[in-house]
């Protein structure tokens, strides 16, 4: 069995998203810093944003995530438990057919993934999901 300490921690060395998305702007900073910068002080509401993610990651190195927020001007995605939480920020121009983004991200460990959407009027909504990164192997 190759279940070593190194394997369990290997994911912890990882950084942020691989995908270069249109308008992606990965910033340094904590979840709080990034959230404050994104909201500009606006209060954070709920509803109008859907985050689709697996409950348990099948492969922590590439976890499919989708965010949809009809009417959003931009969407920011954060992996709160990664060494660098910023995943991406996507801006939608007026010609965008839909305001949704999907990508695959690397997760260091079990954590909450947070999606924020800024609407045209400056209001901000948020959704989050806990994604478990597990050793696995004993179900059944």
């Amino acid at each position: 069995m190759k279940l070593t300490r190194r394997d369990t921690l290997a994911l912890g060395l990882g950084g942020i998203a691989l995908a270069a998305l249109p308008g992606a702007a990965a910033a340094e900073g904590t979840v709080e810093d990034l959230t404050n910068a994104f909201t500009g002080g606006a209060e954070i509401g709920t509803g109008g944003i859907t985050l689709t993610a697996p409950e348990i990651a099948e492969n922590g190195n590439t976890v499919p995530i989708a965010v949809s927020a009809p009417g959003a001007a931009s969407i920011m995605l954060l992996a709160s438990g990664n060494p660098t939480p910023a995943v991406c920020t996507v801006n939608f121009g007026p010609a965008a057919g839909s305001q949704s983004v999907s990508t695959r991200i690397r997760l260091a460990k079990t954590q909450d993934v947070v999606a924020l959407a800024k609407m045209a009027d400056g209001s901000v909504v948020q959704a989050s999901a806990t994604i478990k990164v597990t050793i696995g192997g004993c179900g059944g």
């Binding site: 696995g136 004993c138 059944g140």
Partner: peptide, 23 residues
């Protein structure tokens, strides 16, 4: 079973993904 690639060896069915997928 939603957690096949986690509870069982995913290298035996490498191109499949499962999950509860409530939506």
């Amino acid at each position: 079973f939603p957690y096949l690639p986690i509870a069982n060896p995913k290298w035996m069915f490498p191109n499949l993904s499962f999950g509860v997928r409530e939506e």
